[in-house]
Design a protein around this nucleic acid. Structure first.
Lengths: 128, 128
DNA sequence: CTCGAAAGTTAGGGGTACCTAACAAATTTA
DNA sequence: TAAATTTGTTAGGTACCCCTAACTTTCGAG
């Protein structure tokens, strides 16, 4: 019913896009390694993503993001970068902490706060 | 094993402390209404909180936070206020949006980011 | 081309956190 | 104080997201 994706689903999308850009083809095992999750769990999750029309995949076949899936993945990655930049450049949070934290926050940030972060970064990043 | 509390558990603690300050006694039904959750689910959750020694409660009896429970509740409420203030005063996020958002973020913020937020507020709140 | 390793799937299971329905206890009220 | 209402509990069920074990399919080396 709700149109928003779960954190887990968003993590899968983000990982699939990242791996496809790095390696071209994306495999169940790569996703499993990346997310430190059992490959059986990945197969299960991919069934769900297919049901949501975020990927296409046939049995034993390659994993491909749909346009919808690519769009959603990009949204999440964009938020991740935004939050990370903000935490590091404005709040001076250590980069490693910021990166880990952005992986959680990226799933929860409202569009209003997202806009507010963009404005804040624009107005404050060029100061000395 | 992990010593950190789940978002759900933290929400219960926060709600119990809030209700106890507003009304004195805290009832299952009050918590259910506040969190918009079925009262059967609340009863179940309270069993868990008791197991974690965060509350004391006997069957059909009153709900009391332990010292541990009160401490954890205060930590969450503190983070909530901190995040809310930051979103509103620094980022200019509308108060209603900020309040809702803080209810999610309060469960995820790292101690480093918490400290960073405190510093930032201290250094920027007394400007014009 | 075959056979063994690697990759992927299926079946069954567990924890969390929610639900409804039915029931038990407590409180209100008539 | 007995009946009706409210409050709290129990039992059983669902969805999500992870797990292991056992299986099937695919691929690559010999």
């Amino acid at each position: 019913m709700s149109d928003s994706l779960s954190p887990a689903v968003e993590d899968y999308l983000k990982t699939i896009l990242k791996l496809s850009m790095e390696n071209g083809e994306v495999h169940v095992t790569d996703i499993a390694k990346q997310l430190k999750i059992n490959k059986a769990s990945v197969t299960q999750a991919l069934d769900k993503l297919r049901g949501l029309k975020l990927i296409t995949k046939v049995k034993y076949g390659p994993i491909k993001l749909t346009e919808k899936g690519k769009g959603e993945a990009l949204k999440v990655i964009y938020k991740h970068i935004l939050i990370c930049n903000f935490l590091v450049s404005i709040l001076n949070v250590p980069p490693d902490v910021a990166t880990k934290e952005a992986c959680f926050l990226e799933h929860l940030i409202s569009s209003q706060t997202q806009t507010a972060l963009i404005n804040f970064l624009e107005n404050n990043l060029y100061e000395i």
